[in-house]
Design a protein around this nucleic acid. Sequence first.
DNA 1: GCATTGACGAAGG
DNA 2: CCCTTCGCCAATG
Length: 130
Amino acid sequence: MKKSKLPVSSTKELPKAQTAKEYSFFADVYDVVRQIPKGRVTSYGAIASYLGTKLSARMVGWAMNGAHNVKPKVPAQRVVNRNGMLTGKFHFETQTKMEELLKKDGVAVKNDTVVDFKTRFWDPVNELSL
DNA sequence: GCATTGACGAAGG
DNA sequence: CCCTTCGCCAATG
């Protein structure tokens, strides 16, 4: 009987537990990503900055690693790196899934990179913390 | 308990 | 301008 004090106890299961505010970080990441408007994209660093951990954009990506386990499903395809490149496409069900989802959102993808990324960019710090 | 890795990012050469 | 290195924090080996 393990107490759920552990965050991600193994990669196979994510804690839906927002109870552990220590890990609200994960929940916050998912929450922010779900709030990304259709046709818009954001970067890990932007989310990290919004959460206050801008120095650790990697943690955002790491949190996203469990996004597949989280419900409702997190539109991770709207989250790309600062370069606008679909770095996480390899983590999807299929590598093409990510760009297809983006195209369905109205986001053009070229060479694994979001077209007009700067224009499509949606910064939670600028939008949510407005 | 230390070393390596990771869906990043900024800085240095 | 392109490539390499460091930093960050957490998880895994």
